[in-house]
């Protein structure tokens, strides 16, 4: 047996250990799901394709967000580096997520919530994209494959949530884990790079008491259990898009 092979085993073994550690770390959130732990992501082997066995989603409890979600938005901005386009006007700057204040016209009841890509089961942006750049991954994550995005912006016309932005200028020094560039459309991708590494999305991590993240297909996951108990409303439920981002308290 040569040294390379030993190295290989060593690495494999450590990965397995890492996986065990990750599972151990999430066990409390199974037990204490009523305590609104932020949820769980099981690490996926890097060489295996995602499947539709899982569907990632989150429940945002608006009543527990003291800042209306501003902290979540800030975490997203830090993670992906959007919004600081120097040449673009304010109306042209990217916004992957924003805090929307809602006031009912009749009752004057008011609340704030973070709005980003809702990761629909039937996403209009995916239907309209001519090249298939706007795509839904097998595990329910809706994202833009910028390699084949031609920048036609039809998806932005189609999205009911205004979740998408067009990059209006050349960029440099992007985050290595979050490529984004001129002439393509972009949006929240649920921090797909973190999920694939077994980590929670940045916004979920920023608001662990108000957001539960997890597998919507698994009836026993913390997020499914929480939704079963307190419900999970959709924005524009009338459109029948079956969103993966759900809210409590709207």
């Amino acid at each position: 047996m040569n040294q390379n092979r030993v190295d290989e085993y060593r690495r494999n073994f450590m990965t397995t250990l890492g996986g065990v550690a990750a599972v151990a770390a999430v066990v409390p959130s199974f037990v204490l799901q009523t305590a609104h732990a932020a949820g769980e992501v099981a690490a996926k082997p890097v060489d295996q394709a995602v499947t539709n066995a899982k569907r990632w989603g989150m429940l945002i409890d608006v009543t527990k967000l003291t800042d209306g979600g501003a902290g979540m938005v800030a975490a997203c901005k830090k993670e992906h580096g959007w919004g600081d386009e120097a040449h673009s006007a304010d109306t042209q700057k990217a916004h992957w997520a924003r805090v929307v204040k809602v006031t009912d016209k009749l009752t004057q009841n008011s609340f704030s919530l973070p709005v980003m890509c809702q990761h629909c089961e039937n996403p209009p942006c995916v239907d309209v994209c001519p090249t298939g750049a706007s795509m839904k991954r097998a595990d329910g994550i809706v994202q833009v494959n910028k390699h084949i995005c031609i920048g036609c912006r039809y998806c932005m016309m189609a999205c009911p949530y205004k979740a998408r932005s067009f990059v209006h200028e050349a960029l440099q020094d992007q985050k290595p884990h979050s490529p984004r560039g001129m002439g393509t459309v972009e949006s929240c991708n649920m921090c797909v790079h973190r999920i694939d590494a077994g980590k929670l999305p940045a916004c979920v991590e920023a608001a662990p008491d108000a957001v539960i993240f997890g597998d919507l297909n698994d009836p026993n996951s913390a997020v499914s259990q929480a939704m079963k108990t307190i419900g999970g409303k959709q924005i524009r439920a009338d459109l029948g898009l079956n969103t993966g981002v759900r809210y409590h308290g709207i």
């Binding site: 924003r98 805090v99 929307v100 204040k101 809602v102 006031t103 009912d104 016209k105 009749l106 709005v115 009911p160 949530y161 205004k162 924005i235 524009r236 709207i250």
Partner: peptide, 9 residues
């Protein structure tokens, strides 16, 4: 986004 409500952001 929310029919019947005023929104701002």
């Amino acid at each position: 986004l929310f029919p019947g409500a005023e929104v701002s952001s």
